[in-house]
């Protein structure tokens, strides 16, 4: 991952790399691409086309940008991100299924000057851990929650999630999610936004460059809020699961745009500290 072009003086040499050659020619000390310092060298286990890698990177870049890696403790879920404790370079805790916000509450209460974040999937946060989610939000715990919504249980092999779309075929909804028996998907951001407690709630996606940039901004804001003591900041990231959706990575990115985002509109759902709440669109375009 770590590709560095490093030359400090102009030297005539046998060139095998255009970029190096240009660097050398101009005497530029240039880093073109680098892994965030908040990520370790442990290779990630995620499937090809899974967006966890992108979202990890956005969180890590934020930690780097804010210079808080030595001051941060992350809490990871049970789900595909269960082993994320190996990937982030800050101190890490692995929580029981759904309990990350409670564990984070304990950590934050014990160490108010540390930055505490949770990283959770939809089964973890919106099903088994819904009580912990809602109550940490209503208490306005000064933590950052990164909620990865890919509408399926990935780790256990593709079962129906609380956020699976109506009609979505999964291992446990083989004929499509039947709203008569399995109910409707939960729009967590909208639901939490009804609470007076939370400081900041935004839904983002990582299916195209523009959305990735917006997601990064949102995640950065959610961490910045914590540093400023603003309270519970929640970023829902619409993600992919090509393996369990039965799609290619590019089909999955497309499905995010055609099916997920229309049901889960992107945008800012709550910002206690903003003068005007951001627009909520339904096209994946954030204003």
């Amino acid at each position: 991952m770590h590709v560095q072009y490093n030359c400090t003086k102009f030297v005539l040499h046998d060139c095998t790399d255009t970029m190096t050659c240009i660097c050398k020619a101009y005497g530029i000390n240039m880093i073109v691409f680098e892994k965030p310092k908040a990520l370790t060298d442990v290779p990630m286990h995620y499937c090809p086309g899974c967006a966890h890698g992108i979202i990890h990177r956005l969180v890590a870049e934020t930690i780097d940008a804010l210079g808080i890696v030595g001051n941060t403790v992350g809490v990871v879920p049970v789900g595909c991100a269960v082993m994320a404790y190996d990937y982030f370079a800050c101190d890490m805790v692995e929580a029981a299924h759904g309990r990350a916000p409670a564990v984070a509450t304990g950590l934050k209460r014990a160490m108010p000057d540390r930055v505490i974040f949770t990283y959770q999937g939809d089964g973890d946060l919106a099903s088994i851990g819904m009580a912990e989610t809602v109550h940490s939000a209503t208490r306005n715990e000064n933590i950052t929650v990164v909620f990865v919504n890919n509408a399926i249980y990935g780790m256990t092999g593709g079962q129906m999630a609380p956020t699976s779309l109506p009609g979505q075929v999964t291992q446990t909804s083989p004929y499509g999610r039947d709203i008569k028996t399995a109910g409707f998907p939960i729009r967590v951001s909208e639901m939490l936004a009804t609470l007076d407690g939370p400081a900041y709630i935004e839904r983002v996606a990582v299916n195209n460059v523009k959305n990735v940039r917006n997601a990064k901004k949102a995640i950065q804001k959610a961490f910045q809020n914590q540093l400023e003591g603003k309270g519970f900041s929640f970023i829902e990231v619409i993600s992919t699961c090509p393996t369990n959706w039965g799609m290619t990575p590019s089909q999955a990115m497309k499905w995010v745009e055609t099916d997920m985002i229309p049901y889960y509109p992107l945008g800012v759902y709550k910002d206690k500290y903003a003068d005007v709440t951001g627009d909520i669109g339904n096209t994946g375009e954030v204003q």
């Binding site: 403790v73 029981a96 309990r99 409670a102 564990v103 509450t105 304990g106 950590l107 009580a131």
Partner: peptide
């Protein structure tokens, strides 16, 4: 006062981890 005993013990887990 936690939302449940489950949440309470997991808050304990967090502080103990610290």
């Amino acid at each position: 006062q936690a939302e449940s005993e489950i949440a309470a013990i997991n808050m304990v887990y967090g502080v103990a981890a610290a």
